[in-house]
Write a protein that binds this DNA or RNA. Structure first.
Length: 198
DNA sequence: CCCTGATTCGC
DNA sequence: GCGAATCAGG
């Protein structure tokens, strides 16, 4: 896959929306998140803050030449917010290397980790989902309670009062307690709400 | 362990 | 220019 115009545009768009590199990579397909990140950097939009300001602060790396160098005049160390009772004036700490009044670094308002999908509202499980569950249940790892981790599906199967009880244990969806199949039955996409009229 | 982005460097 | 490998956090 190559970086066609469209792909680059989608990349820009998604990156601008605050999507993670892996998500973008997934969406684009044919590329890894590394590729996405690499492209992002090459495009020069690695930082989602100032459009043109170069404030690439070299992290700390085993510098091969520790001798000389480091003539950094220290741009803006750390104007720590003083615990003053100053009621007004948040004191904007801008490097002010270049006048840039037009782009005040807009923040995304949606960096929520996992945008929660529509919550369940109906109790109807699609036959598809059920079939899927039955299917994967056969592949379940049948974990015991102690074997569950953050990344394992915690869908219970069987009767807790019997020996025949276990948890699915398949890889859970990121940020969710269940594997894909079980998420499918646990979180219904608000299907047709059956208005029971009487 | 899972995930993030950042950087390096051979291709 | 590209992206895998690696680094550095969370």
């Amino acid at each position: 896959m190559s970086w066609t115009d469209e792909r680059v545009e989608l990349l820009k768009k998604m990156w601008g929306e605050g999507q993670s590199a892996s998500q973008i990579a997934k969406e684009l397909g044919g590329v890894t998140r590394n590729a996405v990140i690499g492209k992002v950097h090459r495009l020069g939009l690695s930082n989602r803050n100032s459009g043109g300001a170069k404030a690439a602060e070299p992290k700390e790396k085993p510098a091969a030449a520790p001798a000389a160098a480091a003539p950094k005049p220290a741009a803006a160390p750390k104007p720590k917010p003083q615990p003053k009772t100053e009621p007004a004036r948040p004191a904007a700490a801008q490097p002010a290397s270049d006048a840039k009044p037009a782009t005040p670094a807009r923040r995304q308002i949606i960096p929520a980790g996992q945008p929660l999908p529509p919550q369940p509202s109906a109790n109807e499980i699609s036959p598809e989902a059920l079939a899927k569950v039955n299917e994967i249940e056969k592949k379940a790892k049948k974990l015991g309670l102690m074997e569950l981790t953050e990344r394992t599906c915690k869908w219970p199967v069987g009767d807790p009062a019997t020996e025949d009880f276990w948890f699915c244990g398949l890889p859970a969806q990121q940020g969710k307690p269940y594997c894909e199949a079980h998420v499918g039955v646990a979180f219904q996409p608000m299907s047709s709400r059956r208005d029971r009229r009487r």
